[in-house]
Write a protein that binds this DNA or RNA. Sequence first.
DNA 1: TCGAATTATTGAATCGATTTAACGAAGTGT
DNA 2: ACACTTCGTTAAATCGATTCAATAATTCGA
Lengths: 332, 332
Amino acid sequence: MRDVARLAGVSPATVSNAMNHPDKVSPATRDRVHAAIAELGFVRNSAAHQLRRGTNRAVGMVVLDVANPFFTDVARGVEEGLAAEGRPLILGNSGQDAARETAYLDLFEEQRVSGLLVTPVGDTLPRLRRLRDRGTSVVLVDRRVGVREFSSVTVDDRRGGRLATEHLLALGRTSVAFVGGPPRLNQVRHRLEAARAAVDAHGSGSVRYVETASMDAAAGRAGAERLLALDAPERPDAIFAGNDLVALGVLQALTRARVAVPDDIAIIGFDDIDFAASAAIPLTSVRQPAAEMGRTAATRLLEIIEDPSTSSVVHTVLEPELVVRESTAGPG
Amino acid sequence: MRDVARLAGVSPATVSNAMNHPDKVSPATRDRVHAAIAELGFVRNSAAHQLRRGTNRAVGMVVLDVANPFFTDVARGVEEGLAAEGRPLILGNSGQDAARETAYLDLFEEQRVSGLLVTPVGDTLPRLRRLRDRGTSVVLVDRRVGVREFSSVTVDDRRGGRLATEHLLALGRTSVAFVGGPPRLNQVRHRLEAARAAVDAHGSGSVRYVETASMDAAAGRAGAERLLALDAPERPDAIFAGNDLVALGVLQALTRARVAVPDDIAIIGFDDIDFAASAAIPLTSVRQPAAEMGRTAATRLLEIIEDPSTSSVVHTVLEPELVVRESTAGPG
DNA sequence: TCGAATTATTGAATCGATTTAACGAAGTGT
DNA sequence: ACACTTCGTTAAATCGATTCAATAATTCGA
C-alpha cells in the first residue's frame, strides 16, 4: 500500500480513505489513487484489513455432505441469498464426520467469520454457543439444536413422513420398511415416527425399521439386501427410504435381484433431488425445497448479522411436498 | 492472548512459543499455558497470525459447478489429498460464471492463500500469473491453460472421445450427434475432435455437432429436442453427450418422446458420475477418475508449496475408461 | 564454589491496513 | 482584513500474534 501511496503522491491514509471512505477524499486524488491501484495491481491484505477492522465479512458454511445433491442445492440457495450483500461464502464439507466438522468450526472461529450456517453432525452445541458469545451469528440449516438459542430453517420432517406413508397406505401397501439411519439423526427419527403414527392412524399395516450407518446409496443397497434375505412372506411391500440416495441404492439392489418395482415392492424417497426423476424407475419422493431453505437461511443470517440485538429466535419450517412417480404409482 | 498469558503467569511471547515452538518452552510452563488456553477457550485470531506470519496455510479451490457430482467428487479427492498436511480447504463455486470466478480469485488473493486449485472458466490466465508471481502456487484441475507455466491434472479427453466413438461405431452406429457446449471449452472441443477423427479413421459414418450453451440436464433436453425435430431419416442413431448430466437430459427427452434407447438411438455420456449407473436406462459412459484427479492435484500443489523453486511444470494426464451399460449395449 | 555454557523467558519491534486527532489550506461572513 | 468554518490530507496509534535480541535462570565442569 505504501507503493500505491508513493505512486499517487499521497499518504497511505489517503489510499485507505479512497478505498473505504470515498466521500472523504477529493475526486481528483481519488482518481489518482485508483489509477495507481490499477497500475500496480494492488490487492489489499485481508489479514491486515481484518485485524484492524475486527470483523471478517465472510460467512462460513459447514455442509453435511457435498456428495448429496440435496446439500449442494441448499448451498446454492445460500450463495444466492448472500449475493445480495456481496458477502463471500466459504464452504466446508464435514462429510458427516464430527472431527472434520470440528476442524472447520475451528477454522471459522479463527477467521472470526461474521456468520455461520451449519448442519451439525456431532455434539456441536457448546461450540456454537461459544461462537455466538463471541459475536458470530449462527443459523442452523436442516437441523434444530438448542431450540431456544439458535434460529433455524428446516423442513417439516414429520409432515413429510406422514405424506409418504399415507401415500403408500392409500396404494394398499401394508408392510412398510423404513431404511435409513443412524437413528441419532432427528431427521431419521421424525420421519420414522411419522410413518408409524400414520400407520397407527390408518388402523392397519406395520412399519419395520431397517437401520443403516449412513445415508448414501451404499447404505441403501445394504439395507435392501437385508430385506431380500427374508422369506417371502416376511418381505415388505413398500420401502420408505430415509433420502433419495438411499432410495436409489435400494432400487439398484432390488433391480439386481429382479424384484419388480413398484409391483412387488414400492419405493419412496425423500428430498426429490434432480436425479430422482431420471432414475431407472423414476422415484416417488417427498420434495424438500432445498434452494429456498438455503436462501431463507442466508436471509435470516444477514438479519442477525446486521442487528445482533435482535435476540429473537426464529424457526422457519418449510413444507415438503409429495411428488408421485413410477416407483410407487406404476407406469402411466 | 494477553489474558491467557496473565492466567498462566507468563508473557504473551511465551504463550506464542508454547503454541508454535513447543520445544522452546519447558514442559511445566507449556502445560500451564495449555491449561490456561483450555480454561479460557482461547482461539487465536488468524488475521493477526497471518499478518505476522505472512502466509496463510489454507488452500483455495474454485469449483466449476457444485451441481455436477463430477466436480464434488474431485473436491472430495482434494480434501483427502490435503488431509495429510492438515491444510484447510476453502471451497468456492463459480457455477461456470466468470464474474463469480473472479470474485473468488479476489477473495483468495486478498487472503494470500498458499495454494490455489482452479478449473478456470473465463479469461483467467493473467490473474493466475499474478497470483503465482505473488507467491501463490497454482495447479489447474481438469483444464490446461498457460501450458508452459502451470502444472495441471487432466484426463485425456481425446482418448475418451475416441473410446466413446469407437464403441458406438463398433455397435454399427453410423450417424452420431455430439451434444454439448459451449465449444469454447477445451473439453468439448477435444472430445468432439476425437469423435470426428474416430469416424474418419473408421471410414464411414458422420458426426454432427449440436451446440448447447451449458452442460447440464436442461441443455441435454434442449439438444435432444432439436434432434427430435428432424425428419426421421435425418435423425442420428447415436448421441454422444458432452457429460453425464447432458446425457441424462437427453435420455429424459428421448424417453418422453417414446424413442427407444438404445434400439433407436444409443446414448453415451462422459464422467461416469454415480448417478449414471442408476439412470432410467443405465448410462454407458467414459469414466473419469475424479477423486484420483483431486488427490493428484492436491499432492502436486503441496509439492509446489513446499518447494516453490521447483519451477518444473508437470502435466499429469489420467486415463479415461469406457464403462458399458444398457444405454448403448441393450439389456443383458 | 565460581564462571561458562546452556536453556527459558521476556520486552520491544513488526506485519499492513484503518482510524483518530491534528494540521494546513481554502472559503465565508462581517 | 480578521476570526471562523469547512474540507482534504497526514502522522501516529492501533488491531493481536510472532519473532528477535537481550536478559534471567539453570546446569555443568573444574
